[in-house]
């Protein structure tokens, strides 16, 4: 069996792929139909993103040598935040009428519990992003090599955007396009940061 390096990153990317796939109607509708047509697949999608953030965040906190951020994610506070978000998701899901597959549950957004459901789906992600802003900021603005610093800066920007998008959304709900642009660019910035690190790693292989 081949055991690669950084297997938790692999799982994070695998879950990202699953989450993205479930955001596409052509995949979501058959999968959800298979699960009973009551939008359980949307729960799976949300849990996927929680898992991605949990794994990735611990890695980023360790990479930028920040024990406090690591404790805030792996420690009791972080686990409580995760559990709270999952419990909130489950509760609001049960309270809503979710019959009939609908990608992103967009058909049910008029129901008040669904609003809360969406909110709980964001809560943990925003918490994690907020925790990671500080260590990546430090990584970007302490001395070091340009490549590593720009990678950290890119991720920091991504996490900041996640937080600011959430703040904007709570302030006003008539910002459809802006929120969409911000959340997609936040993903791009985090991915760009990871890609830069991967590239610099490839250029300077670690001797084992």
């Amino acid at each position: 069996m081949v055991r690669g390096r950084n297997r938790s990153l692999f799982w994070a990317f695998a879950m990202t792929a699953l989450g993205v796939a479930l955001s596409i109607p052509a995949i979501y509708l058959p999968v959800d139909g298979f699960l009973g047509g009551i939008n359980l697949a949307n729960i799976v999608l949300r849990l996927c993103f929680f898992g991605v953030f949990f794994l990735l965040a611990a890695k980023v906190a360790a990479a930028y040598n920040s024990p406090s951020a690591l404790a805030l994610i792996r420690g009791p506070v972080g686990v409580t935040a995760l559990m709270l978000s999952i419990a909130g998701l489950a509760l609001t899901y049960v309270l809503s009428d979710t019959n009939g597959s609908s990608t992103g549950m967009s058909e049910f957004m008029s129901q008040p519990p669904m609003q809360a459901y969406r909110w709980f789906g964001k809560l943990y992600l925003v918490y994690v992003a907020a925790v990671l802003v500080v260590p990546t900021w430090r990584g970007a603005f302490c001395r070091g090599r340009v490549m590593e610093r720009s990678a950290a800066f890119s991720m920091c920007l991504g996490f900041l955007l996640v937080c600011s998008t959430a703040v904007l959304q709570t302030l006003s709900d008539s910002l459809g396009l802006l929120v969409e642009v911000l959340s997609y660019s936040s993903i791009l910035f985090v991915a760009l940061g990871l890609a830069l690190i991967w590239w610099s790693f490839l250029r300077n292989p670690v001797e084992k």
Binding site: V60, G144, I197
Partner: peptide
């Protein structure tokens, strides 16, 4: 010392995210 610290920081990044 400074060089070693910088090196350790880069190694930590690669170790975790590379």
């Amino acid at each position: 010392k400074r060089a070693e610290q910088d090196d350790a920081a880069v190694q930590a990044v690669w170790e975790n995210l590379g």
